[in-house]
């Protein structure tokens, strides 16, 4: 059986990036791939609807981390989308025949090794195919503890799932990498890109301003939408944050782990402090989510109100603003 360093991860894209780099001899943690890939984000985009509900995201758009890593000097990432299913599978087989593990974008709904409860229509799920035995592909799916197998027909269907973020057979693999990654400049670059999005965007729907915008909106939902639809919106905001599905929340904790690792690499106390503060922000997000879950489940406590939840999000915004201002100033000093 072909050898591939499978490691379970919290988030598929950073997990795949870390596993593919590690396979090529560049050992890197998921958190570091997430950080240098500028994976952290916040956006509340009410004009984009998913199942009739406004888009809220706690991490960068699908593909952003891999794009950032591909733009590192000396790194080349081969990427291709297809119109034809047979052609897409043939090119996958050709790469595997050359012992190249291949990253794929897939639709979760069509992957039979997922438990039924997790098979929802999410078309930006990343995995690595590292071999083929008979009619089955050997897959390193980073959200699973061990490698899995998938019949060819099912994988082809997952690669050509239709709907939002349709993968269109997208496959990718590294064709060139430097002998080693110089972490310092990549850490600074990754932090700068996240700071820009969290603090300096003119669009009031993203970054720290987006959090405050969501807080204002959320406090008015019961009055504007009625209780039932307000709870529906609230459940959606929280589901995008939860960690059991493949989207995965906990991104604040992952970025905190990146800052912690970076602090040790760069011997920088400020990054330690920012890591601790971001963990506190993650806890605050989680407390908001737990309160929202109680409201959605009809077991709210007396102080579980929409106003209190908006207050929690504002506290997250306050914390994150301080953190990213400190990181921005630190990154500026490194330039």
């Amino acid at each position: 059986m072909p050898d591939f360093p499978h490691h379970q991860s919290a988030h598929c894209e950073s997990g795949v990036a870390a596993n593919l780099l590690t396979h090529r001899g560049i050992k890197i943690s998921e958190a570091m791939a997430f950080g240098i890939g500028g994976g952290l984000f916040f956006g509340y985009l009410p004009f984009i609807r998913i199942n009739g509900l406004p888009l809220v995201t706690y991490r960068a758009a699908a593909g952003h981390i891999l794009r950032q890593i591909a733009s590192i000097p000396g790194v080349r990432l081969y990427q291709k989308k297809f119109r034809n299913r047979e052609e897409a599978m043939a090119e996958l087989d050709m790469a595997l025949a050359s012992s190249i593990p291949v990253g794929l974008q897939t639709g979760v709904f069509w992957l039979p090794y997922f438990p039924k409860a997790m098979r929802f229509h999410f078309n930006a799920h990343n995995l690595v195919v590292y071999g083929k035995e008979g009619n089955e592909y050997l897959i390193s799916d980073p959200v699973f503890p061990n490698p899995v197998r998938c019949p060819a027909d099912d994988l082809a269907r997952a690669r050509f799932a239709s709907g939002a973020l349709a993968p269109k057979g997208k496959m990718y693999y590294f064709t060139a990498l430097p002998a080693k990654l110089e972490h310092g400049p990549l850490i600074v670059r990754g932090i700068q890109s996240v700071c820009r999005l969290m603090l300096d965007t003119p669009i009031p729907l993203i970054g720290v301003r987006g959090m405050r915008f969501l807080a204002r909106r959320l406090s008015k939902w019961p009055r504007r939408l009625g209780r039932e639809r307000a709870d529906l919106h609230l459940g959606h905001v929280v589901r995008m944050q939860e960690e059991i599905g493949t989207g995965g929340g906990g991104f604040r904790f992952m970025y905190a782990a990146f800052l912690q690792e970076s602090a040790e690499i760069m011997q920088e106390e400020l990054l330690h402090d920012c890591s601790a503060s971001l963990t506190t922000a993650g806890d605050t997000w989680r407390e908001f989510a737990a309160m929202a879950a109680r409201v959605c489940k009809g077991r709210a406590r007396p102080d579980d109100t929409y106003a209190a939840m908006a207050g929690s999000i504002d506290r997250c915004a306050d914390l994150e603003k301080k953190i990213f201002i400190a990181l921005k100033q630190w990154a500026k000093r490194q330039a």
Binding site: E30, E243, R286, A290
Partner: peptide, 25 residues
């Protein structure tokens, strides 16, 4: 998954252990 969020928060409060990036819920 919504119950899981609540369980994670309750466990952290009661036992002082956090489910984080490496040990996800």
């Amino acid at each position: 998954s919504l119950d899981a969020l609540e369980i994670a928060v309750t466990v952290q409060k009661e036992y002082g252990v956090r489910m984080d990036a490496e040990n996800t819920s």
